[in-house]
Amino acid sequence: MTSRGTVLEAERLVVGYAGAPVCGEISVAVGAGEILGVVGFNGAGKSTAARTLAGRQLPISGDVKVHGLLANPDAVAFRREVSAVFDEDLFFPSLTVREHLLLVARGHSLPDPEAQVEEELSFFGLQERADVVPESLSSGQRRRTLLAAGLMRPASLLILDEPEQRLDPVMREALGRRIRLLAAGGTAVVLVTHDPQLLLDTATSCLVIDDEVTVTAPDAAAAIIAGA
């Protein structure tokens, strides 16, 4: 059932490839301001689940709903509401970091896009590399650029797939703060992670993905990751 304030809802969701499920059924609801941590071993199906929740992959069965309506990335309203950051290393080869972010800012009609971009560049420590093309960046800097693009735009649902990958500890901590801040502003967050500290710092509840999918408290989920 959709409660008031529920942003993301999945009921008996089965995810996988070519009709073969990769994990157990997922039933979950994430409300505005909540941060759902998603954990599991390698190959458990976390990224597949995240991609399905973001509407980028069709479920084998079950539905994903955002604000009570079926997830459909071809609908403009869905794209306006949902921001998803996956490990996609795809950039325009001749656009600088600043231009990539400006493109997102303008595409989402942000007020004063240049100022917003400067803010993001500063937050992610990319000011000195703002005017170079992504090819000249380290993999960590490219990751920061992707995160900047995903976090700067308005969204009521934010899906992050292992955002801590290739980030240094300082940046990871800053990212945790930023995620909490976004949630405090009413954004629902789905955070797939292998970092117990990031999970403890941010998550309000957790989903453990395996042959059977269970909902658990963040400290229990963090213990699972640490044990893994």
Binding site: A75, V76, R80, S94, L95, T96, E99, L103, R106, G107
Partner: peptide, 25 residues
């Protein structure tokens, strides 16, 4: 949010395309 595949702003899309091409050029 609407389920229909709403069209969205064509002007802004055109501006995005021009911006990308201009920067690349």
């Amino acid at each position: 949010m609407s389920t229909a595949t709403a069209v969205g702003s064509a002007d802004r899309a055109g501006e995005i395309v021009r911006f990308t091409r201009r920067s690349a050029r």
